[in-house]
Amino acid sequence: MPIVVDIDVMLAKRKMSVGALADRIGITPANLAVLKNGRAKAVRFTTLEALCEVLDCQPGDLLRWEACEPEEGNPT
């Protein structure tokens, strides 16, 4: 997936656990894990706003785009 989620990086910088972050932003640890592990199909702006507020960061600190490498023999 070309969108990479860097919540782990910010959690480490802030020395915060996934459970503590989930509690502070008001979602379940399971739903935060889905987002954190890049398995989410979408993220609500309210959730992104809460993440940025609690982690004291910008959306670009949590999400970034990486170009997909074309598969071998499959030019894009």
Rank of each mutant, 00 (worst) to 15 (best):
M1T: 12
M1H: 11
P2K: 11
I3S: 06
I3R: 08
V4W: 08
V4E: 14
V4C: 09
V4I: 15
V5K: 05
V5W: 07
D6K: 15
I7G: 10
I7K: 08
I7L: 12
D8W: 08
D8S: 14
D8E: 14
L11H: 11
A12M: 12
K13S: 12
K13I: 11
R14T: 12
R14L: 09
K15W: 07
K15P: 07
K15I: 14
M16E: 10
M16H: 10
M16W: 11
S17M: 12
S17P: 08
L21V: 13
L21R: 08
A22D: 11
D23G: 13
D23P: 00
D23Y: 11
D23W: 06
R24T: 04
R24E: 15
R24L: 15
R24D: 09
R24F: 00
I25S: 07
G26C: 10
I27D: 02
I27L: 10
T28S: 15
P29Q: 15
A30C: 04
N31P: 02
L32E: 05
V34K: 11
V34S: 01
V34M: 08
L35K: 01
L35T: 06
L35A: 04
L35Y: 03
K36D: 01
K36C: 03
K36M: 14
K36I: 03
N37L: 08
N37P: 03
R39Q: 14
A40I: 03
K41C: 01
A42M: 09
T47M: 07
T47L: 06
L48D: 04
L48F: 09
E49V: 01
A50M: 10
L51H: 02
L51W: 03
C52D: 05
C52K: 03
E53H: 08
E53F: 02
V54G: 05
V54F: 05
V54S: 06
V54K: 04
L55K: 04
L55N: 02
L55A: 02
C57T: 05
P59D: 02
G60F: 00
G60D: 04
G60I: 01
D61Q: 03
D61V: 05
L62G: 00
L62I: 13
L62F: 01
L63C: 02
W65E: 03
E66F: 01
A67C: 02
A67T: 08
A67M: 09
C68K: 10
E69P: 02
E69Y: 01
P70N: 04
E72N: 03
G73M: 03
G73S: 03
N74H: 12
N74W: 06
P75V: 02
T76S: 10
T76G: 08
T76L: 07
T76M: 09
